[in-house]
Design a protein around this nucleic acid. Structure first.
Length: 454
RNA sequence: GUGGCUAUAGCUCAGUCGGUAGAGCGCCUGGUUGUGGUCCAGGAGGUCGCCGGUUCAAGCCCGGUUAGCCACCCCA
Protein backbone atom coordinates (compact mmCIF):
# COMPACT_ATOMS: atom_id res chain seq x y z
CA UNK A 1 0.00 0.00 0.00
CA UNK A 2 1.27 3.40 -0.91
CA UNK A 3 2.14 5.76 1.88
CA UNK A 4 -1.00 7.59 2.93
CA UNK A 5 -0.92 11.34 2.76
CA UNK A 6 -2.24 13.28 5.73
CA UNK A 7 -5.81 14.44 5.45
CA UNK A 8 -5.98 18.13 6.03
CA UNK A 9 -8.31 19.19 8.78
CA UNK A 10 -8.35 15.84 10.58
CA UNK A 11 -5.68 16.36 13.20
CA UNK A 12 -3.77 13.48 14.75
CA UNK A 13 -1.21 14.07 17.46
CA UNK A 14 1.91 12.11 18.17
CA UNK A 15 1.91 10.31 21.51
CA UNK A 16 3.37 13.22 23.46
CA UNK A 17 0.79 15.56 21.92
CA UNK A 18 -1.91 13.17 22.98
CA UNK A 19 -0.55 13.34 26.52
CA UNK A 20 -1.07 17.09 26.41
CA UNK A 21 -4.57 16.76 24.97
CA UNK A 22 -5.63 14.25 27.58
CA UNK A 23 -4.31 16.43 30.35
CA UNK A 24 -6.38 19.31 29.02
CA UNK A 25 -9.50 17.16 28.73
CA UNK A 26 -8.99 15.81 32.21
CA UNK A 27 -8.56 19.28 33.71
CA UNK A 28 -11.67 20.61 31.98
CA UNK A 29 -13.75 17.64 33.06
CA UNK A 30 -12.66 18.10 36.63
CA UNK A 31 -13.66 21.74 36.74
CA UNK A 32 -17.01 21.05 35.12
CA UNK A 33 -17.75 18.35 37.65
CA UNK A 34 -16.62 20.52 40.53
CA UNK A 35 -19.35 22.89 39.44
CA UNK A 36 -22.01 20.22 39.31
CA UNK A 37 -22.27 19.61 35.59
CA UNK A 38 -23.29 16.07 34.69
CA UNK A 39 -21.48 14.39 31.84
CA UNK A 40 -23.35 12.98 28.88
CA UNK A 41 -22.45 11.75 25.44
CA UNK A 42 -24.75 11.87 22.47
CA UNK A 43 -24.57 9.85 19.27
CA UNK A 44 -22.43 11.20 16.44
CA UNK A 45 -25.31 11.54 13.99
CA UNK A 46 -28.54 13.48 13.91
CA UNK A 47 -31.28 13.64 11.31
CA UNK A 48 -30.15 16.02 8.63
CA UNK A 49 -33.22 18.24 8.84
CA UNK A 50 -32.55 18.78 12.54
CA UNK A 51 -28.94 19.72 11.89
CA UNK A 52 -29.82 22.21 9.22
CA UNK A 53 -32.65 23.84 11.13
CA UNK A 54 -30.80 25.92 13.69
CA UNK A 55 -28.08 28.11 12.27
CA UNK A 56 -29.10 27.47 8.71
CA UNK A 57 -26.33 29.82 7.62
CA UNK A 58 -24.67 27.38 5.24
CA UNK A 59 -23.53 24.91 7.88
CA UNK A 60 -21.28 22.45 6.14
CA UNK A 61 -22.60 19.11 7.31
CA UNK A 62 -21.06 15.75 6.49
CA UNK A 63 -23.82 13.47 5.33
CA UNK A 64 -23.80 9.81 6.23
CA UNK A 65 -24.30 7.33 3.42
CA UNK A 66 -24.26 3.59 3.24
CA UNK A 67 -21.77 2.19 0.77
CA UNK A 68 -24.16 -0.55 -0.29
CA UNK A 69 -26.83 1.94 -1.17
CA UNK A 70 -26.17 2.26 -4.91
CA UNK A 71 -27.96 4.41 -7.41
CA UNK A 72 -30.69 1.82 -7.96
CA UNK A 73 -31.90 2.13 -4.41
CA UNK A 74 -34.56 4.51 -3.35
CA UNK A 75 -33.20 7.55 -1.57
CA UNK A 76 -33.71 7.56 2.18
CA UNK A 77 -36.43 10.13 1.76
CA UNK A 78 -38.31 7.86 -0.61
CA UNK A 79 -38.22 5.09 1.92
CA UNK A 80 -39.44 7.43 4.59
CA UNK A 81 -36.09 7.20 6.36
CA UNK A 82 -34.24 10.13 7.73
CA UNK A 83 -31.06 11.34 6.13
CA UNK A 84 -28.31 11.39 8.72
CA UNK A 85 -25.46 13.81 9.16
CA UNK A 86 -22.53 14.07 11.56
CA UNK A 87 -23.17 16.75 14.16
CA UNK A 88 -21.23 19.98 13.70
CA UNK A 89 -21.61 21.17 17.28
CA UNK A 90 -22.85 19.78 20.58
CA UNK A 91 -25.68 22.23 21.10
CA UNK A 92 -28.08 20.89 18.50
CA UNK A 93 -27.69 17.27 19.66
CA UNK A 94 -28.11 18.44 23.24
CA UNK A 95 -31.34 20.25 22.39
CA UNK A 96 -32.67 17.06 20.83
CA UNK A 97 -31.50 15.07 23.86
CA UNK A 98 -33.30 17.44 26.20
CA UNK A 99 -36.58 17.11 24.33
CA UNK A 100 -36.23 13.35 24.15
CA UNK A 101 -35.54 12.99 27.84
CA UNK A 102 -37.41 15.97 29.24
CA UNK A 103 -39.58 13.76 31.40
CA UNK A 104 -36.57 12.12 33.04
CA UNK A 105 -34.33 15.14 33.52
CA UNK A 106 -34.37 17.55 36.43
CA UNK A 107 -34.36 21.23 35.52
CA UNK A 108 -32.43 23.42 35.52
CA UNK A 109 -30.24 20.76 33.97
CA UNK A 110 -26.49 21.32 33.95
CA UNK A 111 -24.49 19.12 31.67
CA UNK A 112 -21.08 18.94 30.10
CA UNK A 113 -20.27 17.11 26.92
CA UNK A 114 -16.82 16.52 25.45
CA UNK A 115 -16.95 15.03 21.97
CA UNK A 116 -15.77 15.31 18.44
CA UNK A 117 -17.69 17.38 15.94
CA UNK A 118 -17.35 17.61 12.16
CA UNK A 119 -17.57 20.52 9.78
CA UNK A 120 -16.92 20.40 6.06
CA UNK A 121 -14.94 23.61 6.00
CA UNK A 122 -11.69 24.56 4.35
CA UNK A 123 -9.05 23.79 6.97
CA UNK A 124 -6.41 26.21 8.17
CA UNK A 125 -4.28 26.59 11.23
CA UNK A 126 -6.61 26.10 14.16
CA UNK A 127 -9.53 25.29 11.86
CA UNK A 128 -10.38 21.68 11.51
CA UNK A 129 -12.96 19.47 9.86
CA UNK A 130 -12.89 17.07 12.79
CA UNK A 131 -12.27 18.51 16.22
CA UNK A 132 -13.08 18.16 19.89
CA UNK A 133 -15.38 20.52 21.71
CA UNK A 134 -15.86 20.73 25.46
CA UNK A 135 -19.29 22.15 26.03
CA UNK A 136 -21.20 23.19 29.14
CA UNK A 137 -24.80 24.27 29.14
CA UNK A 138 -27.55 24.95 31.64
CA UNK A 139 -31.04 24.49 30.36
CA UNK A 140 -34.26 25.38 32.15
CA UNK A 141 -37.85 24.32 31.64
CA UNK A 142 -39.82 27.37 30.63
CA UNK A 143 -37.54 29.74 32.47
CA UNK A 144 -33.85 30.13 33.16
CA UNK A 145 -32.65 32.66 35.73
CA UNK A 146 -30.31 35.31 34.42
CA UNK A 147 -27.59 34.55 36.94
CA UNK A 148 -26.60 31.52 34.89
CA UNK A 149 -25.47 33.89 32.17
CA UNK A 150 -23.05 35.28 34.75
CA UNK A 151 -21.94 31.94 36.13
CA UNK A 152 -21.22 29.97 32.98
CA UNK A 153 -18.44 32.15 31.61
CA UNK A 154 -16.92 32.16 35.08
CA UNK A 155 -16.86 28.37 35.10
CA UNK A 156 -15.05 28.48 31.78
CA UNK A 157 -12.64 31.08 33.14
CA UNK A 158 -11.88 28.73 35.98
CA UNK A 159 -11.51 25.73 33.68
CA UNK A 160 -9.11 27.53 31.39
CA UNK A 161 -7.40 29.11 34.37
CA UNK A 162 -6.64 25.65 35.73
CA UNK A 163 -4.47 25.14 32.66
CA UNK A 164 -2.20 28.07 33.46
CA UNK A 165 -0.05 25.66 35.45
CA UNK A 166 0.98 23.79 32.32
CA UNK A 167 1.80 26.94 30.39
CA UNK A 168 -1.49 27.88 28.76
CA UNK A 169 -1.57 31.65 28.30
CA UNK A 170 -3.98 33.91 30.08
CA UNK A 171 -7.44 34.09 28.55
CA UNK A 172 -9.74 37.01 28.04
CA UNK A 173 -13.46 36.43 27.83
CA UNK A 174 -15.09 39.13 25.77
CA UNK A 175 -18.78 39.59 26.47
CA UNK A 176 -21.63 41.48 24.94
CA UNK A 177 -25.37 41.34 25.12
CA UNK A 178 -27.53 40.97 22.10
CA UNK A 179 -30.25 43.08 23.64
CA UNK A 180 -27.84 45.97 23.91
CA UNK A 181 -26.81 45.78 20.28
CA UNK A 182 -30.29 45.18 19.01
CA UNK A 183 -31.83 47.84 21.24
CA UNK A 184 -29.24 50.37 20.15
CA UNK A 185 -29.54 49.69 16.44
CA UNK A 186 -33.30 49.70 16.53
CA UNK A 187 -33.20 52.92 18.52
CA UNK A 188 -31.12 54.37 15.73
CA UNK A 189 -33.66 53.18 13.20
CA UNK A 190 -31.61 50.33 11.74
CA UNK A 191 -33.83 47.30 11.28
CA UNK A 192 -31.44 44.67 9.95
CA UNK A 193 -29.64 44.01 13.22
CA UNK A 194 -27.81 40.93 12.01
CA UNK A 195 -26.67 42.65 8.86
CA UNK A 196 -25.25 45.52 10.85
CA UNK A 197 -23.47 43.15 13.24
CA UNK A 198 -21.94 41.24 10.36
CA UNK A 199 -20.36 44.41 9.04
CA UNK A 200 -19.28 45.63 12.47
CA UNK A 201 -17.64 42.27 13.07
CA UNK A 202 -15.15 43.09 10.32
CA UNK A 203 -13.76 46.03 12.27
CA UNK A 204 -10.54 44.36 13.33
CA UNK A 205 -9.83 43.21 9.81
CA UNK A 206 -10.72 46.09 7.56
CA UNK A 207 -10.84 49.09 9.86
CA UNK A 208 -13.53 51.61 10.82
CA UNK A 209 -13.59 53.58 7.56
CA UNK A 210 -14.26 50.50 5.48
CA UNK A 211 -16.93 49.30 7.89
CA UNK A 212 -18.63 52.68 7.76
CA UNK A 213 -18.67 52.49 3.98
CA UNK A 214 -20.14 49.00 4.09
CA UNK A 215 -22.81 50.06 6.54
CA UNK A 216 -23.87 52.81 4.20
CA UNK A 217 -23.57 50.75 1.03
CA UNK A 218 -24.87 47.39 2.22
CA UNK A 219 -27.16 48.19 5.12
CA UNK A 220 -28.60 51.46 3.88
CA UNK A 221 -27.40 53.34 6.93
CA UNK A 222 -26.92 57.07 6.89
CA UNK A 223 -23.38 58.27 7.56
CA UNK A 224 -24.53 59.40 10.99
CA UNK A 225 -26.02 56.01 11.82
CA UNK A 226 -22.82 54.36 10.66
CA UNK A 227 -20.83 56.66 12.89
CA UNK A 228 -23.01 55.74 15.86
CA UNK A 229 -22.51 52.04 15.20
CA UNK A 230 -18.75 52.49 15.16
CA UNK A 231 -18.84 54.49 18.35
CA UNK A 232 -20.79 51.73 20.06
CA UNK A 233 -18.35 49.12 18.78
CA UNK A 234 -15.43 51.08 20.13
CA UNK A 235 -16.66 50.80 23.72
CA UNK A 236 -15.03 48.21 25.91
CA UNK A 237 -14.00 47.85 29.52
CA UNK A 238 -14.07 45.60 32.52
CA UNK A 239 -16.28 47.54 34.89
CA UNK A 240 -19.73 49.07 35.01
CA UNK A 241 -18.54 52.31 33.42
CA UNK A 242 -19.06 50.73 30.00
CA UNK A 243 -22.76 50.66 30.76
CA UNK A 244 -22.78 54.39 31.38
CA UNK A 245 -20.81 54.99 28.21
CA UNK A 246 -23.30 53.06 26.14
CA UNK A 247 -26.27 54.78 27.74
CA UNK A 248 -24.73 58.20 27.20
CA UNK A 249 -23.97 57.37 23.59
CA UNK A 250 -27.49 56.13 22.98
CA UNK A 251 -28.94 59.22 24.65
CA UNK A 252 -26.86 61.48 22.42
CA UNK A 253 -28.45 59.82 19.39
CA UNK A 254 -31.85 59.68 21.07
CA UNK A 255 -31.66 55.91 20.65
CA UNK A 256 -32.49 54.68 24.17
CA UNK A 257 -34.99 51.83 24.09
CA UNK A 258 -36.47 49.48 26.68
CA UNK A 259 -34.59 46.60 25.08
CA UNK A 260 -31.36 48.53 25.39
CA UNK A 261 -32.00 49.22 29.07
CA UNK A 262 -32.78 45.56 29.74
CA UNK A 263 -29.59 44.51 28.02
CA UNK A 264 -27.52 47.09 29.86
CA UNK A 265 -28.83 45.91 33.22
CA UNK A 266 -27.83 42.35 32.33
CA UNK A 267 -24.43 43.39 31.04
CA UNK A 268 -23.81 45.37 34.20
CA UNK A 269 -24.64 42.39 36.40
CA UNK A 270 -22.28 40.20 34.44
CA UNK A 271 -19.40 42.63 34.47
CA UNK A 272 -19.75 43.43 38.14
CA UNK A 273 -19.91 39.79 39.20
CA UNK A 274 -16.97 38.93 36.99
CA UNK A 275 -14.88 41.77 38.42
CA UNK A 276 -15.37 40.27 41.86
CA UNK A 277 -14.95 36.60 41.04
CA UNK A 278 -12.39 36.60 38.23
CA UNK A 279 -10.75 40.01 38.12
CA UNK A 280 -9.32 40.98 34.74
CA UNK A 281 -10.66 37.99 32.85
CA UNK A 282 -14.02 39.22 31.60
CA UNK A 283 -14.14 42.30 29.42
CA UNK A 284 -17.28 43.86 28.01
CA UNK A 285 -16.65 44.49 24.33
CA UNK A 286 -19.54 46.01 22.42
CA UNK A 287 -18.29 44.85 19.06
CA UNK A 288 -18.57 41.14 19.83
CA UNK A 289 -21.23 40.01 17.44
CA UNK A 290 -20.60 36.50 16.22
CA UNK A 291 -23.12 33.72 16.26
CA UNK A 292 -25.86 36.15 17.03
CA UNK A 293 -28.27 34.37 14.75
CA UNK A 294 -29.86 32.45 17.59
CA UNK A 295 -28.45 34.05 20.68
CA UNK A 296 -30.85 36.27 22.56
CA UNK A 297 -28.91 37.62 25.51
CA UNK A 298 -25.31 37.40 26.63
CA UNK A 299 -22.74 36.33 24.08
CA UNK A 300 -19.18 35.24 24.82
CA UNK A 301 -15.99 34.91 22.92
CA UNK A 302 -12.63 33.93 24.38
CA UNK A 303 -9.14 34.63 23.16
CA UNK A 304 -5.73 33.52 24.32
CA UNK A 305 -3.80 36.61 25.27
CA UNK A 306 -0.94 36.92 22.79
CA UNK A 307 -2.68 34.59 20.33
CA UNK A 308 -5.65 36.69 19.33
CA UNK A 309 -5.07 35.83 15.67
CA UNK A 310 -6.05 32.27 16.42
CA UNK A 311 -9.61 33.43 16.93
CA UNK A 312 -11.96 32.42 19.67
CA UNK A 313 -11.16 29.26 21.58
CA UNK A 314 -14.36 29.30 23.60
CA UNK A 315 -17.66 30.86 22.58
CA UNK A 316 -21.30 30.73 23.42
CA UNK A 317 -24.26 32.60 24.71
CA UNK A 318 -27.84 32.65 25.83
CA UNK A 319 -30.67 31.35 23.67
CA UNK A 320 -34.28 31.66 24.78
CA UNK A 321 -35.33 28.63 22.81
CA UNK A 322 -32.56 26.07 22.90
CA UNK A 323 -35.28 23.50 22.38
CA UNK A 324 -39.01 23.49 22.02
CA UNK A 325 -41.58 20.77 21.50
CA UNK A 326 -44.38 23.17 20.76
CA UNK A 327 -45.80 23.14 24.26
CA UNK A 328 -42.69 23.67 26.32
CA UNK A 329 -39.68 25.73 25.56
CA UNK A 330 -36.30 25.22 27.14
CA UNK A 331 -34.11 28.28 27.35
CA UNK A 332 -30.42 27.72 27.84
CA UNK A 333 -27.01 29.27 28.15
CA UNK A 334 -23.74 27.60 27.32
CA UNK A 335 -20.21 27.84 26.09
CA UNK A 336 -17.99 25.54 24.13
CA UNK A 337 -14.22 25.24 24.19
CA UNK A 338 -12.47 24.35 20.96
CA UNK A 339 -10.13 21.84 22.54
CA UNK A 340 -8.43 20.89 19.28
CA UNK A 341 -7.80 24.50 18.38
CA UNK A 342 -6.36 25.15 21.82
CA UNK A 343 -4.20 22.04 21.88
CA UNK A 344 -2.92 22.54 18.34
CA UNK A 345 -1.71 26.02 19.25
CA UNK A 346 -0.17 24.81 22.52
CA UNK A 347 1.82 22.25 20.56
CA UNK A 348 2.68 24.25 17.45
CA UNK A 349 3.75 27.31 19.42
CA UNK A 350 5.75 25.11 21.77
CA UNK A 351 3.95 26.48 24.83
CA UNK A 352 3.66 23.19 26.65
CA UNK A 353 5.46 19.87 26.51
CA UNK A 354 4.89 16.39 27.86
CA UNK A 355 7.73 14.98 29.92
CA UNK A 356 7.51 11.86 27.76
CA UNK A 357 5.28 10.26 25.16
CA UNK A 358 5.08 6.83 26.74
CA UNK A 359 3.69 5.96 30.17
CA UNK A 360 6.70 3.81 31.00
CA UNK A 361 8.76 5.00 33.93
CA UNK A 362 11.16 2.06 34.04
CA UNK A 363 12.64 -0.07 31.30
CA UNK A 364 13.81 -3.41 32.63
CA UNK A 365 16.85 -4.54 30.69
CA UNK A 366 17.20 -8.13 29.53
CA UNK A 367 20.58 -9.73 30.15
CA UNK A 368 20.01 -12.64 27.77
CA UNK A 369 16.95 -14.40 26.46
CA UNK A 370 17.47 -17.27 28.93
CA UNK A 371 16.86 -14.92 31.84
CA UNK A 372 14.10 -12.81 30.29
CA UNK A 373 11.79 -14.32 32.88
CA UNK A 374 13.74 -12.63 35.64
CA UNK A 375 13.26 -9.28 33.89
CA UNK A 376 9.57 -9.98 33.46
CA UNK A 377 9.36 -10.68 37.19
CA UNK A 378 10.95 -7.35 38.02
CA UNK A 379 8.49 -5.53 35.75
CA UNK A 380 5.58 -7.39 37.31
CA UNK A 381 6.73 -6.43 40.81
CA UNK A 382 7.00 -2.79 39.81
CA UNK A 383 3.60 -2.75 38.10
CA UNK A 384 1.99 -4.41 41.10
CA UNK A 385 3.06 -1.36 43.08
CA UNK A 386 1.75 1.06 40.46
CA UNK A 387 4.98 1.78 38.64
CA UNK A 388 4.57 1.66 34.83
CA UNK A 389 7.26 -0.70 33.59
CA UNK A 390 8.29 -2.17 30.27
CA UNK A 391 10.76 -4.92 29.41
CA UNK A 392 13.41 -4.44 26.74
CA UNK A 393 12.42 -5.97 23.40
CA UNK A 394 15.70 -7.79 22.84
CA UNK A 395 18.73 -8.77 24.84
CA UNK A 396 20.82 -6.33 22.86
CA UNK A 397 23.92 -4.68 24.26
CA UNK A 398 23.05 -2.60 27.29
CA UNK A 399 24.04 0.53 25.41
CA UNK A 400 21.29 -0.18 22.92
CA UNK A 401 18.78 -0.96 25.62
CA UNK A 402 19.56 2.35 27.29
CA UNK A 403 19.13 4.04 23.94
CA UNK A 404 15.73 2.38 23.57
CA UNK A 405 14.68 4.04 26.82
CA UNK A 406 16.28 7.35 25.93
CA UNK A 407 14.47 7.54 22.59
CA UNK A 408 11.16 7.22 24.41
CA UNK A 409 11.92 9.48 27.33
CA UNK A 410 11.83 6.61 29.80
CA UNK A 411 13.81 7.98 32.75
CA UNK A 412 14.97 4.74 34.42
CA UNK A 413 16.64 1.55 33.23
CA UNK A 414 16.68 -1.46 35.51
CA UNK A 415 19.53 -3.97 35.39
CA UNK A 416 18.76 -7.38 36.89
CA UNK A 417 21.72 -8.83 38.74
CA UNK A 418 23.20 -9.54 42.14
CA UNK A 419 21.98 -7.17 43.33
CA UNK A 420 19.61 -5.45 40.89
CA UNK A 421 20.55 -1.92 39.97
CA UNK A 422 18.53 0.98 38.60
CA UNK A 423 19.99 3.84 36.60
CA UNK A 424 18.59 7.32 36.12
CA UNK A 425 19.70 7.82 32.54
CA UNK A 426 19.38 11.61 32.74
CA UNK A 427 21.89 11.99 35.57
CA UNK A 428 23.74 8.72 35.01
CA UNK A 429 23.31 7.82 38.68
CA UNK A 430 23.08 4.08 39.23
CA UNK A 431 22.21 2.48 42.56
CA UNK A 432 21.35 -0.91 44.04
CA UNK A 433 17.61 -1.45 44.13
CA UNK A 434 14.92 -3.93 45.11
CA UNK A 435 11.86 -4.25 42.89
CA UNK A 436 9.74 -4.92 45.97
CA UNK A 437 10.43 -1.53 47.49
CA UNK A 438 12.01 0.88 44.99
CA UNK A 439 9.90 3.63 43.43
CA UNK A 440 10.78 6.53 41.20
CA UNK A 441 10.29 10.10 42.41
CA UNK A 442 6.63 11.13 42.19
CA UNK A 443 7.38 13.52 39.33
CA UNK A 444 8.71 10.65 37.22
CA UNK A 445 5.98 8.12 37.93
CA UNK A 446 3.71 9.18 35.08
CA UNK A 447 4.19 11.52 32.12
CA UNK A 448 3.43 15.09 33.09
CA UNK A 449 2.57 18.17 31.11
CA UNK A 450 4.70 21.17 31.87
CA UNK A 451 5.33 24.62 30.42
CA UNK A 452 7.85 24.41 27.62
CA UNK A 453 11.35 25.10 28.78
CA UNK A 454 10.99 23.40 32.15
C1' G B 1 -17.34 28.09 -2.23
C1' U B 2 -13.37 32.24 -4.14
C1' G B 3 -8.17 33.65 -4.71
C1' G B 4 -2.63 33.06 -4.11
C1' C B 5 1.53 29.74 -3.15
C1' U B 6 3.73 24.87 -2.83
C1' A B 7 4.76 19.31 -3.96
C1' U B 8 12.45 16.18 -4.41
C1' A B 9 15.12 10.61 1.11
C1' G B 10 11.63 8.91 7.33
C1' C B 11 11.95 14.74 8.73
C1' U B 12 13.62 19.92 7.15
C1' C B 13 15.18 21.42 2.59
C1' A B 14 19.08 22.51 -1.68
C1' G B 15 19.24 21.28 -6.91
C1' U B 16 22.51 26.89 -11.34
C1' C B 17 21.65 27.85 -18.12
C1' G B 18 16.99 21.48 -19.33
C1' G B 19 22.16 16.79 -19.59
C1' U B 20 18.66 10.47 -15.77
C1' A B 21 19.79 13.49 -7.91
C1' G B 22 22.41 16.19 -2.93
C1' A B 23 23.00 18.17 2.35
C1' G B 24 21.72 18.33 7.53
C1' C B 25 19.04 15.59 11.06
C1' G B 26 17.22 10.66 11.92
C1' C B 27 18.12 5.27 11.11
C1' C B 28 21.70 0.71 10.76
C1' U B 29 26.93 -1.33 11.48
C1' G B 30 31.77 -0.74 13.53
C1' G B 31 35.55 1.89 16.76
C1' U B 32 37.12 -5.79 20.69
C1' U B 33 34.38 -9.12 25.00
C1' G B 34 27.19 -5.90 28.15
C1' U B 35 26.12 1.03 30.19
C1' G B 36 23.34 5.45 25.74
C1' G B 37 24.01 10.94 24.68
C1' U B 38 29.89 13.59 22.12
C1' C B 39 33.41 12.22 18.32
C1' C B 40 35.32 9.20 14.01
C1' A B 41 34.59 5.64 9.88
C1' G B 42 31.23 3.03 6.90
C1' G B 43 26.10 1.83 5.21
C1' A B 44 20.85 1.52 3.94
C1' G B 45 17.15 4.68 1.95
C1' G B 46 14.30 8.56 -3.73
C1' U B 47 9.23 6.01 -10.15
C1' C B 48 11.63 13.99 -8.02
C1' G B 49 2.80 13.88 -6.05
C1' C B 50 0.07 11.78 -10.44
C1' C B 51 -1.30 11.96 -15.95
C1' G B 52 -0.06 13.95 -20.46
C1' G B 53 2.78 17.42 -23.78
C1' U B 54 7.39 20.05 -25.80
C1' U B 55 12.59 18.24 -26.50
C1' C B 56 17.95 14.19 -28.76
C1' A B 57 17.34 14.82 -23.39
C1' A B 58 12.58 17.16 -18.16
C1' G B 59 13.24 17.37 -10.89
C1' C B 60 13.64 21.96 -13.99
C1' C B 61 9.51 24.29 -19.51
C1' C B 62 3.82 23.81 -20.80
C1' G B 63 -1.29 21.78 -19.80
C1' G B 64 -4.29 18.96 -16.64
C1' U B 65 -5.14 16.55 -12.02
C1' U B 66 -4.67 15.39 -6.87
C1' A B 67 -2.97 16.82 -2.24
C1' G B 68 -0.98 20.40 1.18
C1' C B 69 -0.26 25.53 3.01
C1' C B 70 -2.10 30.65 3.37
C1' A B 71 -5.92 34.50 2.81
C1' C B 72 -11.27 35.44 2.19
C1' C B 73 -16.00 33.48 3.90
C1' C B 74 -17.40 31.49 8.34
C1' C B 75 -16.40 29.65 12.84
C1' A B 76 -14.16 26.28 18.10
Amino acid sequence: MARPTPLSGFPEWLPDGRVVEQHVLEALRRTFELHGFAGIETRAVEPLDQLLRKGETSKEVYVLRRLQADEGDATPDDRGEKQLGLHFDLTVPFARYVLENAGRLAFPFKRYQIQKVWRGERPQEGRFREFVQADIDVVGAGELPYHYEVELPLVMAEALGSLRAIGVPEVRILVNNRKVAEGFYRGLGLGDVEGVLRQVDKLDKIGPEAVAELLVAEQGATPEQAKACLELAAISGSDASVVEQVRALAASYDAVTDLLETGLAELRALVEAAARRAPGVVVADLKIARGLDYYTGSVYETVLVGHEQLGSICSGGRYDTLASDGKNTYPGVGLSIGVSRLVSRLLSAGLVTATRGVPTAVLVAVTDEETREASDAVAAALRARGVPADVAPTAAKFGKQIKYADRRGIPFVWFPGEPDQVKDIRSGDQVDADAATWAPPADDLWPRVVPAGE
